[in-house]
Computed example of a mutant assay.
Amino acid sequence: MPASLRNLRHATLNIEDGIAEFTHQRPEARNALSMELRDDYADLLDTVERDRSIRVLIVTGSGGSFCAGGDLKSMTGARERPETGAPEAIRRRVLQAHGWMQRLRNLELPVIAAVDGAAVGAGFSLALAADFVLASSRAFFCMSFAKVGLVPDLGAAWLLPRVIGMSAAKELVLTARKLGAEEAQQLGIVHAIHAPETLADDARAFAQRFVAAPREALGLGKRLLNQSFETPYASLAELECAAQAVASSVPFHAQAIEAFLEGRPPLYDWERQPRA
């Protein structure tokens, strides 16, 4: 399919060969999460959820930074105005962000965060919402909220302990210290580390390996896992039964069974595909 490039407010969205690549485009501000960039995320999700040809999403940043967190300059200006600085207005603004953040986390296809440079505050939260974090060797992560007297937001208090455990999550939140790519990999946050100059290409090569995957099976399997910690076994079994009924009814399943019976290679085989 032909490539498609959209210039959004503070991001770009490129769609090519089944891969959607969403790039933060505020390098002068280390890609801080402006209100415009938040709106771009909502537009991104509208597109990806609607376009069934998209099989995988890459989220990344420009100019050597992933996302430096909330835009403190615009946040300060908003707090100085009565209509946007009141506690209830702040609550509504944060709650609105959770609308698209939950959609990003539950997106029924693989989401890859390609992190170069800073993933700080809300930028760290965005990385945690991905299924795979590929980091450059100069990437660093920081739950920086305490440094400016705030609590973790964009779901970080929910996401972080599920990835690294409660004790380690408390340590990162309460100290607000930085951790580099290697420590983040040891904690289970980072899937793989790449050279800064090859990260973008490596992320696309990694994403390409999902293009042949069964979208429905991966999406439904991901949703089951996302709900597994809070859902009783019996309830999750019901969800599993419904998901299996859907997955077994799509053409991919019948084609995969036919290939197996005829001795042909699997339609989707991660171990046989070229690695990034």
Rank of each mutant, 00 (worst) to 15 (best):
L199F: 08
M35K: 10
D43P: 00
E108S: 14
E171T: 13
E183A: 12
A247Y: 03
R275D: 11
A237H: 12
L5H: 13
C241I: 05
N226S: 06
A213I: 02
W158P: 00
A89R: 08
T76Y: 07
S228N: 06
L261Q: 13
I189S: 07
L5G: 00
E230W: 04
R6F: 11
R9Y: 05
G63K: 07
I164A: 09
A86H: 14
G188Q: 07
L126F: 08
A78L: 15
A256Q: 15
F260H: 13
T198G: 04
D131W: 08
L13N: 09
G63I: 01
N31H: 08
F66V: 04
L150Y: 00
Q185V: 04
K222N: 07
E108T: 14
I19W: 10
L57K: 03
L128P: 02
R52I: 05
L126N: 07
R272V: 00
E271T: 13
L45T: 11
R50C: 06
S62K: 12
V56G: 03
A205P: 00
H253I: 00
R9G: 06
M143R: 01
A176M: 06
Q244I: 01
Q96Y: 13
Q186W: 02
G85H: 11
D269A: 15
G18R: 08
S53K: 13
F229M: 10
H24Q: 07
A157P: 02
P266F: 05
L159N: 05
A192W: 05
R81N: 11
L239G: 09
A130R: 06
S249T: 08
A114H: 06
D51R: 14
N7E: 13
D116P: 02
F124T: 01
N14V: 01
E108P: 13
W270M: 14
T60D: 03
R162N: 14
L160H: 02
F132C: 02
R138K: 11
M166L: 13
A97Q: 11
N226E: 13
G219K: 04
T23A: 09
G64V: 03
A32I: 02
P152R: 04
A207Q: 01
L160N: 03
G221N: 05
E271I: 05
A242Y: 02
N31R: 10
L126D: 02
E16G: 01
R204V: 10
V211T: 12
E28P: 01
A176F: 05
D201C: 03
T84C: 06
S4L: 07
A176R: 06
C241R: 14
D39R: 10
R138S: 15
M1R: 14
E216K: 06
L187Q: 10
E183W: 01
T84S: 15
A169D: 05
L187A: 10
T12W: 10
